[in-house]
């Protein structure tokens, strides 16, 4: 994150919950603007917010109507808070352009994870450069730099790294990884994958710890201290 705090607009009528969410978001380093009713929110949306956290059951204008109006003029990410409402309410929210929803009750870290996920900037530079910590991957030239040093990778090793790097921090299942990088006729299947990953880790040297094994799932690329 840059030093500038990202602004979040919270629309929530419940005083206790609202205060709690404000505290949680501020503690996580976000700037928070809290609006307690639908009508005020209608006048002030979208404002300067980078993300809107929107409760639906509001006094004044209903949350979904706010969302509908907001989507006419803005693409700001909207995270809807829903209190176990009917499926059609959630579905309608997504149809109207909500990016995500969170069902009450939720844990604060759940909220923060969703907010971070929505505000995460894409790592890929326009020219196909992926940068993760001390690792730089040029997908166009198929080159990898670990701490500035070029590393020779086989085609499969590079594809494994590039596939994981497209979604840093997210676990990728062995099935999906194998399907993406292996030619089943020439390079075998999932079991062969482990061998390729093992070799990739070695070649990355200290940065090999960036590639982690996820139990029961597959692999993940994340920035870690070597």
């Amino acid at each position: 994150m840059t030093g500038q705090a990202r602004q979040i607009l919270l629309v929530e009528d419940d005083a206790k919950l609202g205060q709690q969410v404000v505290d949680q978001l501020r503690a996580a380093g976000f700037g928070v603007d809290w609006i307690r009713d639908g009508d005020t929110a209608r006048d002030r949306l979208p404002g300067e917010a980078h993300l809107v956290v929107l409760d639906l059951m509001l006094p004044g204008t209903y949350g979904l109507d706010l969302l509908k109006e907001l989507r006419r003029s803005s693409d700001v990410p909207v995270l809807v808070l829903s209190a176990q409402e009917d499926t059609h309410v959630k579905v309608r929210a997504l149809e109207l352009g909500a990016d995500d929803y969170l069902t009450k009750p939720f844990w604060p870290e759940e909220l923060l994870a969703r907010v971070h996920a929505r505000l995460r900037r894409p790592l890929a530079a326009p020219d196909g450069q992926l940068v993760l910590g001390e690792l730089a991957i040029d997908t166009a030239a198929r080159r990898v730099l670990a701490r500035g040093e070029a590393i020779e990778l086989t085609r499969v090793e590079f594809d494994v790294l590039a596939t994981l790097a497209r979604r840093p921090g997210a676990a990728v299942s062995r099935i999906d990884l194998a399907a993406d990088v292996l030619d089943p006729e020439r390079e075998g299947t999932e079991r062969t994958l482990d061998v390729h990953v093992s070799r990739l880790r070695k070649k990355l040297g200290p940065l090999g710890s960036y590639v982690t094994t996820v139990w029961g799932v597959g692999y993940r690329l994340e920035e870690r201290a070597p």
Partner: peptide
């Protein structure tokens, strides 16, 4: 049921927040 659910889920959310702290 929907309203009760809503009414119950609100304090539960606050409770979860407190526990988290």
């Amino acid at each position: 049921v929907a309203n009760t659910m809503h009414d119950v889920m609100m304090p539960l959310t606050v409770l979860q927040g407190h526990l988290s702290q």
